[in-house]
């Protein structure tokens, strides 16, 4: 619950916890989101491994595989965001949430946290398969999980905002990818660059500019998301 804005009153914190619990309960009952997101991610990585099976697993290949796997993560995030935004709309929850007497920033945080949790679960699948099939080691450096988390926030902070906005128009699912992917290329570049530097044993000093890029993007998108989410539904 570290994402709670500093101005949150205890009731906002409670609302956040309740809404988040609701999200997880719904997902636990239906498992629709994780099924679609996880399956998409797994098939992507398997297709990638299958497509590159004839290549030698050398250093160049590993760097390529790392980038390809990050693209899989980004696309899985788009699939998940679309899925949950559509589900919310189908159940008419967008309107009912709007009537709740809570700060829109709390609603945004709930969406972001739940999307983050589901994406992390999906990433466990992706990176496990990646380690198994493509020799990509997500535990090569203790800082790599932190970079993955930062990159996830960088993907999802604008993603949640745009998914909510696009889900309210017809054909919005197709638009989310068009809108989100250009914005998140710096995040992608930062994540791949930082991982590359850490994987090459350059330590934090080598990865610093990329971590800075990632951190700046994530912080900026998060701040904009918190500010703008309420404006979507007026």
């Amino acid at each position: 619950m570290a994402d709670t804005p500093a101005t949150a009153t205890p009731s906002s914190v409670r609302a956040l916890a309740l809404l988040l619990a609701r999200e997880f309960r719904t997902e636990f009952r239906t498992r629709s989101l994780l099924a679609s997101q996880g399956l998409f991610a797994a098939t992507s990585v398997i297709a990638l491994a299958l497509g590159s099976r004839a290549l030698p697993h050398n250093e160049t290949f590993q760097r390529f595989a790392l980038s390809a796997i990050w693209v899989c993560v980004l696309f899985a995030a788009v699939v998940g965001l679309n899925r949950s935004a559509l589900a919310e709309r189908e159940r008419g929850l967008n309107t009912s949430f709007r009537l709740l007497p809570v700060d829109p920033a709390v609603l945004y945080t709930v969406r972001l946290c739940s999307a983050l949790a589901f994406l992390i679960v999906t990433e466990v699948i992706i990176f496990a398969l990646g380690a198994l099939l493509l020799d990509v080691n997500a535990l090569a450096d203790p800082l790599i999980p932190a970079i993955i988390l930062l990159a996830d926030i960088g993907f999802l902070a604008p993603g949640v905002l745009l998914a909510t906005a696009t889900s309210e128009v017809r054909g919005g699912e197709a638009l989310l990818a068009v809108a989100l992917i250009p914005l998140t290329i710096p995040v992608l570049a930062g994540a791949i660059g930082a991982w590359d530097a850490l994987g090459a044993g350059l330590g934090f000093a080598g990865a610093q500019p990329y971590v800075l890029l990632l951190g700046c993007c994530a912080a900026m998108f998060l701040a904009l998301g918190l500010l703008l989410y309420g404006k979507l539904s007026e």
Binding site: P158, L161, L162, A165, T166, E168, V169, G171, A174, L175, V178, A179, P182, L183, F221, L224, L228, K231, L232
Partner: peptide, 23 residues
């Protein structure tokens, strides 16, 4: 592209503004 894909109206305005601010 985003704007061209949407019918005119409030929703299009919101998306355009939000995307402009994000970009």
């Amino acid at each position: 592209a985003l704007r061209a894909a949407l019918p005119p109206g409030q929703k299009r305005g919101i998306l355009t503004a939000v995307y402009g601010i994000l970009a």
